[in-house]
Amino acid sequence: TQVHVDGVTYTFSNPEEAKKFADEMAKRKGGTWEIKDGHIHVE
C-alpha cells in the first residue's frame, strides 16, 4: 500500500500500518487522508 505525502511516497506491505501512518501524518499536518486509486493520499 502506498502513502503519498507532500510528493514523497512511502510503501507499506500491511494496509493497516499504512492507514495508521497516514493518520499520524495527517494529524501532524492538520489535514486529512483519503484513499484514491488504491493509494492513500495525505492532504
Rank of each mutant, 00 (worst) to 15 (best):
F21P: 00
K20E: 13
V5S: 07
H41C: 10
R28L: 15
T32A: 08
Q2L: 13
Y10G: 00
Q2V: 13
V5H: 05
Q2W: 12
F21N: 00
S13P: 11
H4Y: 11
T11A: 09
D37G: 09
V42L: 08
W33L: 08
E17G: 06
F12I: 02
E43T: 15
I40H: 02
G30E: 08
G31C: 08
T32H: 13
V42Q: 01
W33C: 05
K19M: 15
V42T: 02
N14W: 07
A18P: 00
K36L: 09
A18R: 00
T32R: 12
V8F: 12
T9Q: 09
V3E: 00
G30P: 03
H39F: 06
K20W: 09
R28A: 15
V8R: 11
H39W: 05
P15V: 14
H39M: 13
I40D: 02
K29C: 11
T32Y: 14
R28S: 15
I40C: 04
N14D: 14
H41P: 02
G7P: 01
T32I: 09
R28W: 14
D23C: 10
I35F: 13
D6I: 03
E43L: 15
V3W: 01
Q2G: 05
D23T: 12
T32S: 12
A22R: 01
F12V: 01
E24H: 07
E34A: 11
H39S: 10
T32G: 07
K20F: 10
A18G: 05
F21Y: 06
V42E: 02
E24S: 05
T11R: 09
A26V: 15
V42A: 02
E16V: 09
N14T: 12
K20L: 13
F12H: 01
F12Y: 04
E24P: 00
K29I: 15
A22M: 02
T1R: 04
A26W: 02
V5G: 03
K19G: 07
E43D: 11
E16M: 09
K29Q: 13
H4D: 05
K27L: 14
A26Y: 03
Y10A: 02
E43W: 15
A26I: 14
D23Q: 11
F21V: 02
H4E: 05
A26E: 04
T9H: 07
P15H: 13
K20S: 12
K20H: 11
A18K: 00
I35G: 04
G38I: 02
R28D: 14
V3I: 02
F12M: 01
V5E: 02
K19S: 09
E16H: 10
K29T: 15
K20I: 12
V42S: 02
E17Q: 10
V5C: 09
I35N: 05
K29G: 14
F12K: 00
T11P: 06
V3C: 02
K36E: 05
N14A: 09
G30H: 07
D37R: 01
H4V: 08
E24N: 05
V3D: 00
D37T: 03
K36N: 06
H41M: 09
G7Y: 06
A22E: 02
Y10S: 03
G38S: 05
D6M: 06
T1K: 04
G31A: 06
F12P: 00
K27P: 03
F12L: 03
K29W: 15
T32P: 02
T9N: 05
A18Y: 01
V5Y: 07
T9W: 10
E24R: 07
G38Q: 04
K20T: 12
E43I: 15
I40A: 02
G31F: 05
K36V: 12
K36Y: 08
G31R: 03
E34C: 11
G38C: 07
